[in-house]
Design a protein around this nucleic acid. Structure first.
Lengths: 209, 209, 209, 209
DNA sequence: TCGTAAGCGAGACGGTACGTCGAGTCTTGCT
DNA sequence: AGCAAGACTCGACGTACCGTCTCGCTTACGA
């Protein structure tokens, strides 16, 4: 979730003629802007966020924002990208990996209000190709850990070779997505156990259960 | 999905002292507004929709819109509610019911651009209690068929009594939600078979499968 | 100095399709804007005037201003044109006409702060063809009374036929212009007598004076 | 009121504790700034001039400008003061002195675009005491030659002792001021003869003319 | 059959935010 | 120190929508 090469993504507006003339851009202001954006995103959501509000809360002029980001959108996406990720677990057991990783996933979601911010952005993707492109790597990086967990499980023989791993990952994360988007709720870490159990063993009654 | 008593929700300002004097409201204009709203919602999304644009496309004055809906939000929600629902299937088999219903669900999603509109609205729920309240019954009505399918399956003994039916419904719909929101994709009806199979039988390999 | 056909000059932006659809423009707002503009013009001058300030003082939205005037400039010019003119005197005597008219001229200048506003505008003429064009009729109308006074005097035989009347008018008004622009002072009505005497009889000493 | 050492007014920040440490200020940059200011003043006028534009045209950083002049205003005034004056004539004849001096006056006006710059500044005087103060000595120095011409004429007895010399000077310069400010025109040297004749002999018809 | 009350399209109203630009200040590394 | 460059905060620019408010007109009802 790090942002190691931020400028490569956003500062395409005015590549300085020589390497470093003039006063360098204030890293302090940069961070204050991202922080303020994230705060406001959490408080008022995507459609309620104003650049003027960000500038005011960050104690920064509007021009300083527009000098770094060409418009509101990339600013929001980068601020969103600042949200911390979550650690992947590798215990040697599929069930433990899934439960533990999913729990951390949800904790991160709730601790950082990602749960409120992400839907705001995701909802706009369909009408905003630019946003969609910017959001894609961020969204994917949050799904990949689950894919890797299943890959390891397959290598260990815990699951069949022909299981569609992408689908399996979506199945595990699915109920959380539904809770978030369809039900407007906050996914609770207590959901994790039942979700994983049900996804692993299936909904159908089984003789040997 | 019908909206049989629309005015009860939105037209609470109206009832004049004498029951019905003056020119009646134009049903034609009403429908033109909803149609235009839906079209624009599909084209430009929630945050890009302007009431001015709706008025223009509907060939209607802004006041005519605000006479019927107190603000942009309920208008959008009602327009959204106009989207057709989908029919529930009752074949006597859980698997068939799920696959068939889910297929119709996806077909409705894609045919009506619900897939583009719904995320737009769902994303704002977290920051907009009013929207959330308005959206809730609509969203729930789209999940209920799956709940009922599982209830019937439980009555038939196809699934255990202690299965969390809400969770089962979310598990089945989950991959679609993930596709829509996390991956920014369009869910394809071809996904239905694998999803239902995986959800019913579980991800783990079983001796007797 | 009246503004009998205001819209012909300024409302060229959006000629309404049919004669009078929609809510008519508020004459009240119009006047409040012109008044506020004039006040601010007097207080802070041409270069210090802001449209935002005008809107605020007039209690009006900025759009209401820009709906009427395409930019700051014509607004200022029209507000300037609102300043009252002065009455021309026709006593049958050149000397009396000049002295009396000039006195009224100065009184109008001082009473209405024309003396502070006019230079502000006049100074920009050289660099602003649009302003120059807009200002021209206003400026000329303030010089014409003097031209007419001299024309009548010539008809009466008070002055020679070959006197350059335009130049004579400029000679009489000249010291006021110099006071205003070169000396940054406020022309006093007490200057009138000496000015007219000197202009009529000449600077050179004469035997028979 | 004299301003013999220009820098004393504007460069008051400078005198360092130890007389002259560090790199001395570039006289080259100083002149480039004044030149650029004057050019832009002529091209775009007072209200259109930007310090950023001056810096760019002069090939200088903005700080270099603000190190020398506390704000835009004194810079403009000093640049204005750079415009060459005009030489006074002393021929022993009032009429010749006036005509010749006035002609040179107008030539200087036109050659140096003083005619475009001066009104720009003069117009702001009423609302800008600082500008007024800075402009005063410059403006007066351009009127003084005429005062001196009349003083010499009085000493020679060409004009009466009780003639108001200041007023006489204003009368002679007046038509030029009127042309410049009220009529928005460029005063032509051809005006000089008629102006002086009319001012000296008066507008009224005389027996012995 | 006609008056009247409310609806209609149009568009102006006071606001707020947009994204841009300039003022005057500050901060780099270089001279 | 001064220098060019260019970032800094602040605030005005002119535009676009919000939700409200007239206009002059049309439409159905009830007297």
């Amino acid at each position: 979730m790090a942002q190691p090469e931020r400028d490569d993504k956003t500062d395409r507006s005015a590549p300085p003629p020589s390497a470093s003339t003039g006063r360098p851009r204030s890293e302090e202001a940069h961070q204050a802007i991202l922080d303020a954006t994230l705060e406001l995103l959490i408080e008022v959501g995507f459609s309620g966020l104003t650049v003027e509000g960000v500038a005011q809360r960050a104690g920064v002029g509007k021009a300083t924002i527009y000098r770094r980001w060409p418009s509101k959108l990339p600013l929001i996406v980068e601020a969103f990208g600042e949200l911390p990720g979550f650690e992947e677990v590798d215990s040697g057991s599929l069930e433990v990996d899934l439960k533990e990783t999913l729990k951390r996933y949800l904790e991160a979601f709730n601790a950082t209000s990602l749960g409120a911010v992400f839907p705001s952005l995701a909802g706009e993707r369909a009408h905003n190709p630019e946003l969609s492109k910017l959001l894609e790597p961020v969204a994917r990086s949050r799904r990949e850990p689950f894919v890797r967990i299943f890959e390891r499980a397959r290598e260990r023989g815990e699951i069949a070779d022909d299981v569609d791993i992408g689908l399996a990952a979506d199945l595990v994360v699915g109920p959380i997505s539904v809770t978030l988007f369809f039900r407007g709720g906050t996914p609770s870490p207590r959901m994790v156990g039942p979700i994983v159990d049900l996804a692993l063993h299936g909904i159908l009654r089984r003789r040997d259960d």
